[in-house]
């Protein structure tokens, strides 16, 4: 699984190629693999590119530090203030 990638596509057609394992942090992205998205390797998401970028960044951030979460030795993740509310909604949607 580690060498497989999925392509996340935003509503304004930005594409992000993400490691499948990283994407699977989101239950929604993970579940989608049983469906058509699993076959095509492409997941169309109804969100803007800047939001999706932020989400992908977070997914990698989360993946990188997941083992250190216990020790608390994790740098802060910067959220652009103007996106904060929308990110909150998207995160709920993706179950992150």
């Amino acid at each position: 699984m580690s060498n497989e990638y999925v392509t996340l596509v935003s509503s304004d057609n930005f594409k992000y190629v993400v490691d499948k394992e990283v994407a699977s942090i989101s239950t929604v992205l993970k579940n989608s693999q049983g469906f058509e998205e699993g076959k095509t390797g492409r997941i169309n998401l109804d969100m803007d590119g800047d939001i999706l970028e932020c989400i992908v960044e977070y997914l990698y951030y989360h993946y990188k530090y997941k083992d250190q979460a216990e020790s608390g030795d994790v740098p802060e993740f910067n959220i652009p203030t103007h996106l904060a509310l929308e990110l909150l909604v998207k995160a709920d949607y993706l179950d992150i």
């Binding site: 929604v28 989608s32 058509e36 699993g38 169309n44 998401l45 109804d46």
Partner: peptide, 15 residues
Amino acid sequence: NVSNLSYEQLYRKAY
């Protein structure tokens, strides 16, 4: 016939 369904769309409908 799972593989012909778009998960994201269905999920969004339920959402």
